[in-house]
Amino acid sequence: MLNLILFGPPGAGKGTQSEKIIAKYKLIHLSTGDLLRSEIQAGSELGLKAKTLMDQGILVPDEVVIGMIDNKLKEHRNAAGFIFDGFPRTVKQAEALDALLATYNESITLMVALVVDDNELLARLLNRGKTSGRPDDQNEELISKRIHEYNTKTTPVAEYYQSQNKYTSIDGIGEVETIFQMITEAIG
């Protein structure tokens, strides 16, 4: 089973690249952002709690996210693999994900990190905010907070997977197809 983590700050191109990876490798897409947004849209208690936190640029508690991921793993036991998009964001989450996957006799195959500088991220997110309808993509201060949150809390996750020899970084600036080619080469 191929289990990938697609890693990078908000606006790095994870959504765009994950679509291409899913199509090529027939993976199940696990985007915690999408899972949370669907809960928000449904108006569930979890969704309302998540919305309050997300609107402030704060991460949703680990146990909530791990529970949602476990439900998806159970739903798709015969999958060719999974692509984790935007998760894990902390070392604690990475350890919890590894422990969860171990219960299914699985593990992470590779973390692919899309590297994009902060100024480019800000420009991309503000541009996306014009069409996405997402309020967190329309406020420059909130975007800067999200990028800062990523840089301070999630960078150690890359080091966690580097220590397991399961990490590669890809320049996330350039043509979509060129970036995708570099990702497929890294997957092997």
Rank of each mutant, 00 (worst) to 15 (best):
M68P: 05
A50I: 10
D55K: 03
E185G: 13
A99T: 14
P9H: 06
A113P: 11
F82Y: 12
K72E: 13
A80G: 12
A96K: 15
E39W: 07
A42I: 06
V115S: 13
A96I: 11
A12N: 07
H76T: 01
V116E: 10
D85T: 05
M68F: 01
G13Y: 02
L2Y: 09
L30I: 15
K74M: 03
I173A: 10
A99V: 07
K49N: 14
G13R: 02
M68R: 04
N78K: 15
N119R: 14
A99L: 12
S144A: 11
V112K: 01
N139L: 04
A94H: 02
E19T: 10
L100D: 00
N119P: 14
K74R: 00
L53G: 12
L59W: 00
F7G: 08
Q56V: 05
I173L: 12
I147S: 01
I28M: 03
G57E: 00
D85H: 07
D55T: 01
L100T: 04
L27M: 03
E177N: 07
T103N: 14
T131C: 15
L6F: 05
I58C: 07
R134Y: 08
G47Y: 02
F84G: 00
L35V: 06
K145F: 06
V157N: 01
T184K: 13
A99Q: 13
T16W: 06
V91C: 10
A102I: 08
S31C: 00
R124G: 12
A99I: 12
G81Q: 02
G188H: 13
G174L: 06
E177W: 05
Y161K: 05
G129F: 03
Q164R: 11
V116S: 10
F7M: 07
